[in-house]
Design a protein around this nucleic acid. Structure first.
Lengths: 343, 343
DNA sequence: CTGAAAGCGCTTACAG
DNA sequence: CTGAAAGCGCTTACAG
């Protein structure tokens, strides 16, 4: 590693001067500046960021991002919003992902502590990671936290997400507007999963009640997870009720569940949307690449990322002023494509 | 920020001792150890990693990962392999992604320099980022580099990837084994893109020649990119040749192109695989969720990530021993599903 | 077993 | 305009 001392020696000046040509070139004679620059080039010198941020008053800000599963389909969009915004503000981003191997809880703690040790000024925590169990650690960390796609029961942290209840309600409204009266739902953990299962079921139920549509418990089919497999098995269950519940449309709690649900329909020789209409939730980029193109509720993943960072920056800028925490809903939107037909 | 000095004061001992209970607990009396630990807990002290790695002899190793586009569908798998392997070796991973906004070349340089400044001991560069233009900078960086899913013309760096030529050949062999004789290709830049376009076309052409299948230039349809749109437009072009070229199967250079190609077929009232068989390349997780499930060439993304890190670690462990650079091919595999029929 | 001191690679007042 | 010196928060021989 070539260091500032080497450059100083090579260019025949002090390290103070080398430091200046790097950080305050104006304070240095063009002549010596040239010499130093030449040495830097010649030696291939790169200032050590760690030493820099240790010694410098104006510590360069960095942000941590903690995510549960890097292979999540929408992760890229969320990340892009976060990364772009951070970059534009000259903020370093440090990513910590959780591995599905190994104990979840321990990994979350490790991740947050690691971020703290690396000196991040704030942390963005994404989705299904936040529960009250971590309150104590989070308090000890003494570091601003913002939740993306997530929520904290006691509202201790601000969060940026979609209004799942409203969005689900809107999905059903859309189906109703297309003439559907018998509407089922394919989901997972409608009562246990506070983050997605519960609110999306709630929105569905609200709409069913609001439009005075027929409802029985069995109209909501529950898979083991919010993935393809969960959607497949839930739809398969729903299909068994079809004699008494002639549904014409199904609201799926996630796009990926919708893919599984569509496959189950296909395996039962049912056509989408001719026999059964499907509406999803997420608007994954892939949802526009399948046939039929999936009609779905679009979440503003990138915007959620952008706003999370902006909010964090605001908190950092005014540390004294106790920011009001709250849930900030980012806009959602029904994207009409091909999987819902008009009756 | 509470620092070691604060803990020392609170527990009534020197900072040396505090440092010891953190790094060499055995060297400290259980009694004082307790006191220090209590203070640490009470004050919420977290050692400053930057100061630590600055002062410590045994600098903790960190690796940089440079990727062109975080939204790439297979990124998650590649990342998981890298992250998991690094984590298991106690190595820190620093991610730098490129944004499609802004000049590519500049971003690449910035990314590598930034990584260097952060003191990474090695860099993994992923896919379509490497060209000879960067040779000079890379030399100046004086840092080991490994290429994942990529290749360097002059073989200056080791790379881990799929044997695209062989894998493409195998794809065609598979089609031939299913009775197909008229086989087209949907791709992009078969001559300009050295990374994907050229080798996959080469493998296709090799197989066509090997099996003495009919070939004309127009059998290879070229889209603007390797994405859905590129696949759609290429297939649309290919369809125009159908009167004189009654192809029964098409090899798509990427799975995403295959999605586009399948859509084009659908829009022309052609069924997959009844009218036209399709084989893709990548084996994205989504390829198993669409109907028909895509038959494709599986790349070992995760393994490529794992091996890249292992190789880098080996280089770091034996810095003197000039490692032989080379291209290491990770296994590929034909995954039979539903998009190819037997004639 | 514990503490004082030097040092990691920088930045930044403070003199000159 | 430039350099010597102190300091950032740690670790680690070196004494005791």
């Amino acid at each position: 590693m070539v260091k500032i001392q080497d450059v100083a020696k090579d260019s025949g000046c002090s390290i103070s001067t080398v430091s200046r040509v790097l950080n305050n070139p104006d304070l240095v004679t063009p002549d010596t500046r040239e010499r130093v620059l030449k040495s830097i080039e010649k030696l291939g010198y790169y200032p050590n960021e760690k030493a820099k941020s240790l010694s410098s008053k104006k510590q360069n800000v960095s942000l941590g991002l903690l995510i549960p599963d890097i292979t999540t389909f929408y992760f890229g969009e969320l990340y892009r919003g976060i990364s772009r915004t951070a970059k534009n503000s000259g903020i370093d981003l440090i990513l910590r992902d959780l591995d599905d191997e190994g104990p979840l809880q321990e990994q979350i703690l490790d991740g947050m502590v690691s971020l703290k040790k690396h000196g991040v000024s704030g942390i963005i925590i994404s989705s299904r990671v936040m529960t009250e169990e971590y309150d104590e650690v989070l308090n000890r960390l003494r570091i601003p936290i913002v939740l993306a796609l997530s929520e904290h029961k006691k509202l201790k942290f601000s969060s940026f997400k979609t209004d799942d209840i409203k969005a689900s309600f809107d999905a059903i409204s859309y189906l109703v507007s297309r003439g559907h009266k018998h509407i089922g739902m394919v989901t997972s953990s409608p009562t246990e999963d506070k983050l997605v299962g519960e609110p999306r079921y709630q929105g569905f139920k609200n709409a069913i009640d609001f439009y005075r549509l027929p409802f029985k418990a069995k109209h909501v089919a529950v898979g083991n997870n919010f993935r393809y497999e969960g959607g497949y098995s839930a739809m398969t269950q729903l299909l068994e009720t079809r004699e008494t519940f002639p549904f014409s449309a199904v609201f799926c709690a996630t796009d990926e569940m919708a893919f599984g649900a569509m496959r189950s329909l296909h395996d039962h020789n049912l056509k989408v949307p001719d026999d059964v209409s499907i509406i999803g939730f997420d608007n994954l980029s892939i949802s526009n690449m399948i046939t039929p193109k999936l009609t779905t509720v679009s979440q503003s993943f990138e915007k959620i990322g952008v706003e999370s960072v902006n909010h964090l920056i605001k908190i950092l800028e005014e540390p004294k002023m106790q920011m009001e925490t709250g849930v900030f809903y980012m806009p959602h939107q029904i994207v009409e494509r091909e999987s819902v037909r008009t009756i």
